[in-house]
Amino acid sequence: MRIRIKLNGSWREDDVEPRLLLVYYLREVAGLTGTHIGCETTTCGACTILLNGEAVKSCTVLAVQADGAEITTIEGLASDGKLHPLQQGFWEEHGLQCGFCTPGMIMAACQLLGRNPHPTREEIRQGLEGNICRCTGYQHIVKAVEFAAQKISPQSTVES
């Protein structure tokens, strides 16, 4: 089946089998291997991408379901060779160890900051509930998201 997808800002057309999962489309048809395949059972969040602006697990979406949609993957975040604030946050705050969960974490965090630009630590943890880090580096991941939130829309420190 012929599908048309706006992938990281540019439209492309491909012939795909209806049973092709979106994550395989991204990795094997479009060649964007930044989106990882972890559990393949809608659990781990490594394959998280933005589908029409919403974070979804691309192992549980058919590529044909995304026909006509806009998709953003980890490759679509940096612009003009400059890291996205979330990428910078993960760099600065040591938000990754092995890095396998990182693309999914960043895409889920991307939606979180879109819905809630100034999340508390608890809200960050809730926003990332669908993403598992097997290195268990959660403290630094939360700090990385806080770094990005501050970078994207600076807020003066609340007096306690």
Partner: peptide, 9 residues
């Protein structure tokens, strides 16, 4: 239900 991503879809 599920998690954030699951609830989106």
């Amino acid at each position: 239900i599920g998690d954030v991503q699951v609830r989106n879809k």
